[in-house]
Design a protein around this nucleic acid. Structure first.
Length: 105
DNA sequence: CTCTTGACCATGT
DNA sequence: AACATGGCCAAGA
């Protein structure tokens, strides 16, 4: 067993990994779930996260339903495309319909 | 240890 | 709606 020096990462990854298909989670929500109030840490954790692994970062959006333009893995188009492919409803062209896909804890 | 940056959030103008 | 500021917290240089 390894020492969870990055327990925060582990928790974030775990939560994000558990997001079902067709649902998205906000940074603030994940932040609370991992026991913090700072959504920034969540965003930082995902950025420091080994993308392409088991963490579907594209299912993680901010509170405004906004994605991460320019800082995502391949661009907002890619993320949007993925979300649509996963079956995520969109409220607008660049925003996710949190009313329909908010995954509650 | 100090300073800067950051995939956020809330409020004010 | 867009821009600016403050807050919180952790990592990188």
């Amino acid at each position: 067993m390894q020492k969870n020096k990055n327990n925060f990462f582990e928790q974030v990854y775990e939560v994000v990994r558990k997001i079902p298909e067709g649902k998205v989670m906000t940074y603030g929500q994940i932040a609370e779930k991992v026991g913090t109030k700072d959504a920034r840490k969540v965003g930082w954790a995902l950025h420091a996260n080994p993308d392409g692994s088991d963490v579907p970062c594209h299912r993680v959006v901010n509170k405004n339903g906004r994605l991460a333009p320019g800082y995502a893995f391949g661009g907002p188009d890619e993320q949007k495309n993925r979300l649509i492919t996963e079956g995520i409803p969109f409220s607008t062209k660049d925003k996710v319909d949190l009313k329909r896909c908010s995954y509650e804890i």
